[in-house]
Design a protein around this nucleic acid. Structure first.
Lengths: 221, 221
DNA sequence: ATTCAGACTGAACACGCGTTTAGTATGGTG
DNA sequence: CACCATACTAAACGCGTGTTCAGTCTGAAT
């Protein structure tokens, strides 16, 4: 499906029709409009995802995604399509994201219940973050492939990602709780005093996005 | 700039010209073409980023991004634009990503050197992963905002993300090393025996992470 | 044998796009 | 003054788009 590779707007109905060996008019006749075709594609892809999921022992789309990663070459086209759905704010993409989030949350709850995973001060937010982190390599697959030198489709790429990923999820990044403690104090303090929670994570935090607040000893401007 | 909100192709030259109160022909006259306009926009945004960076005491774009998060409302439009750059495979986007990656890697190396961060079995890959994770909330800002109920560019959203993020980066997710050990054994075993490197991260891994691109085949209507 | 629904098509339509063209003001320079 | 580069525009051009139209062909039901 060209939608995944080139995006929806960059793909013309005539192009799709030519791929299928039919006329553009027939495509419109069957699907009503280009948007109708897109809706049908969305539905078809999600259906395929659910079918794969039904075959899995454990429940969940997240598990299906894990299987993809063992057989990357199978699913490349689908993944392009899902990446498109997730980032273009379409209704189908929103529902897909919500499902992924829900299933990730369930997985984490189960992990906490059986003791294999830590408790969180904010389990919902943690599930959300981990869902985002899981999708990041998919959305940035081209950048990732470029940086690694091997296409993300390759088994080599997945092999290489596995250990550092699990190391992060097992040991974390920091060697101590200084930054966490400082952030927690700042957040609690801000709540208690009503002060504006100005975050100032200091130089130690590698995360460019969410923001760790005030560190005790700070050299910032 | 409308490019960030609606994307490059969805924004017409006439629309831009109307925003600026001039004719479309003048825009083309000044920038040569629509692509020229885009290049100028890219350059201007990156220049602005570098200017902000120059004002910061610590070096680095990552630091600049952290400052954004303290004043989210300032930079909303820029963030949309950068997200677009990073995901559309443009040359400027590639260079931006490479810079972010490089600076993240430097930050991690410094952290390891001063003992505040753990060593990694694969520091480059870890830097890459953490860069991806940092960008995920930006790329999926709409999904994130939807799930949280408040837009990403709000102090409330950033406050809520801070603690779970630092908890993850401080303690990790798993309570023990079982999954890491199993994966490590599988990876090493595969290397030793020459077996197909089937990644077996175990059912407990919540990370849906990487994906592959594949050939363009078409499932016709 | 006739009818009829549906698959299917080539040609056309209306429209929006990026871009070109031909031209008009404006204002500094010799 | 004349000259000329520059800022700027309205109108048009050519093209590609999604979609419609008027039919043709096929095959099963009546």
């Amino acid at each position: 499906m060209r939608f995944g590779k080139q995006g929806f707007e960059r793909t013309s109905v005539r192009e799709i029709a030519a791929d299928a060996g039919v006329s553009a008019a027939l495509v419109i006749h069957h699907y009503g409009s280009k948007d109708g075709l897109r809706a049908a594609c969305d539905a078809s892809l999600v259906e395929q995802l659910m079918a794969d999921r039904a075959k899995a022992d454990e429940p969940g789309m997240a598990q299906t995604m894990r299987e993809w990663l063992d057989h990357p070459e199978h699913f490349g086209a689908s993944i392009d399509y899902f990446a498109m759905m997730l980032s273009d704010g379409t209704e189908g993409g929103n529902r897909l994201f919500d499902r992924l989030l829900h299933e990730t949350a369930a997985l984490l709850d189960a992990g906490v219940a059986d003791g294999s995973m830590r408790e969180s001060s904010d389990p919902e937010m943690r599930a959300l973050l981990i869902t985002l982190y899981g999708l990041a390599p998919i959305l940035l697959r081209d950048q990732l492939g470029r940086a690694m030198g091997t296409p993300l489709a390759s088994a080599a790429a997945i092999r290489r990602m596995t250990r550092p990923t699990l190391e992060l999820y097992t040991h974390g990044l920091y060697t101590d709780t200084r930054i966490l403690d400082a952030a927690a104090a700042a957040l609690d303090g801000a709540v208690a005093t009503g002060t504006t929670p100005r975050s100032d994570k200091g130089p130690g935090n590698p995360n460019q996005d969410p923001d760790p607040p005030a560190q005790a000893n700070d050299t910032s401007p």
